[in-house]
Computed example of a mutant assay.
Amino acid sequence: MERDLSGVRELASDLAVRAGRLQLERRDTLRVGAPKAHANDVVSDVDIASERLIVDAVHAAWPDDAMLAEEGNGRRGTSGWNWVIDPLDGTRNYISRTGPWSVCIALYHGDEPRMAVVHEPVANETFSAIAGGGAFLNGEPLRVAGGPPLEKALVGVSFQPNPATKERAARVIRQLLPVSGDIRRLPAALNLVYLAAGRLDGGLALDTNLWDIAAGALVAREAGVTLGGHGTDFTPELTIGAAPELWPALSELVRSAA
């Protein structure tokens, strides 16, 4: 069954903004819980409250849809539509006040991403996309340019901070940093949407989860960013994005190092 994706995006954008507002309001009173998968995999009560806000509203609107949500509020569905939700991508930045974070909501039909929203609360920026309909920032269209050569490129780097992935990231950075213009470490979703906005020329993400990259990847692709991984498409294990002219050099280096 088809769905009014423009209306879906409007609701998802509103929910992301509301979750972001909650995160700003509760930042001074947040409580950090026990780590999840490893010592650096932190979660706060604000992550959980933000997810509940989004999940409850989506379930009320489309009770037959499935959900994959980072903090455990997923459910099976029967409609063929699946929501992928990261209520607070960049929790360590949020808790420590050392960098940006975002609210991420994506909608799939089967295996195909159809709609995406990434909201950055501090800057009040909402990136969004509908498959085949382009990418937008606060309603204005985004289209990536060709990109500089690698030696002048600004490249975003995202990775899970578990011991094995940090070793893998170190190998990539060791190869990338001397030959690129510079690098920035960012949460995965913002890495991808900043590519779409032309703030970064290239980006890579290592060992993420689908909820980290689903929304940002659709925004990036709809803006004309070239995406891939070890094969012809990106995966949570390895996601590489770049402006088209930068793609061959960056993807070759990252694939060999990763």
Rank of each mutant, 00 (worst) to 15 (best):
K152P: 02
W247Y: 15
D65P: 13
P187W: 10
S158W: 06
D14H: 08
R9K: 15
A116C: 10
G132Q: 05
R18L: 07
G147L: 06
L210P: 09
M67Y: 15
G147R: 07
V118P: 14
G156R: 01
Q175S: 12
D201Y: 07
E167F: 04
M1T: 03
G202S: 08
P35S: 05
G139P: 15
R52A: 10
A242D: 10
S44R: 00
A188G: 14
D4A: 04
L137T: 01
A164I: 07
G134Y: 10
S96F: 10
G202K: 06
V55N: 02
L15G: 06
L195R: 02
L250G: 03
R97P: 01
A215M: 12
E151P: 00
A16K: 03
L142W: 09
G198M: 11
I173Y: 00
I48F: 09
E167Y: 05
G132D: 11
Q160V: 08
A135M: 10
H38S: 09
P149R: 08
G228N: 03
G147K: 04
L204D: 08
E167K: 09
E167M: 13
P141K: 05
V42H: 03
W62Y: 06
R255Y: 01
A196G: 07
A153H: 04
E2S: 11
R185H: 13
V179C: 01
E51A: 08
R184C: 02
I130R: 10
D47S: 00
R184G: 00
N40L: 11
G147Q: 06
Y108R: 13
A220N: 03
V46D: 00
A106I: 08
G202D: 08
R92C: 01
A196E: 11
R174E: 00
G156K: 00
F234A: 07
E120W: 03
T235G: 09
L154Q: 05
R3I: 15
G132W: 06
K36M: 10
E237S: 14
D64M: 03
R184F: 04
L204G: 08
V103T: 08
E140W: 09
Y108C: 14
Y108P: 10
T78F: 01
Y94L: 04
L195E: 05
R114L: 14
A49P: 05
I105P: 14
Q160G: 10
R184V: 13
A249E: 15
W247A: 15
V8M: 15
I130G: 10
I240C: 04
A61G: 00
I240V: 14
Y108W: 15
A34W: 08
A196M: 05
G181I: 02
I95G: 02
P244V: 03
G228K: 05
T226K: 11
P236F: 06
A131Y: 04
R114K: 14
T232V: 04
G99D: 03
G99W: 05
A19N: 07
V193K: 05
